[in-house]
Amino acid sequence: MHTNSLYQEVILDHNRKPRNYGQLDPASHHAIGHNPLCGDRLDITLQLENDHIHNIAFQGESCAICKASASMMTTVVKGKSRNDAETLIQEFRELATGKLDTNQPHHLGRLTVFSGIRDLPTRVKCAILPWHTLHAALNAIANTSTETHDETQALSGNS
């Protein structure tokens, strides 16, 4: 296992100083994500303009992995089109569940610091929750959970 490589400085830094932390008002899209297994709760608001994420913010209570994942996610998807964001969501889910071949072209960039999470099955959902919630916000699902059945595809193979 590579726990050391998981709690890397970039993750610890985003945990300490989360970027885009707070709530947008007004927001065109909003979702609350919940992981009932550990009680983590994440609130994501965004402003979508011309199908691009003009601005995004998150807040909530969570572990360091979840908070850093959310913080890094907001910096990466800001300015991206909805389609590009959905591609990143899909790629991140595959990365976290060990299904992404990082030797093939992908768009995750330094988000690959989360690749170590695949060796910690009980923590995969912590990293995925922000992405899961962003997907819900983009698709106008107000409340979502890591245990939601129609989203199990996102979390298969990790519980």
Binding site: L6, L37, C63, I65, R123
Partner: peptide, 22 residues
């Protein structure tokens, strides 16, 4: 300032098994 799940994961790195959660 440290979430129990992060505590559990890092303790596990040292071979220490504790329970974290509710």
């Amino acid at each position: 300032g440290i979430h129990p799940h992060d505590i559990g994961t890092i303790l596990n790195q040292d071979g220490i098994a504790v329970r974290t959660g509710h």
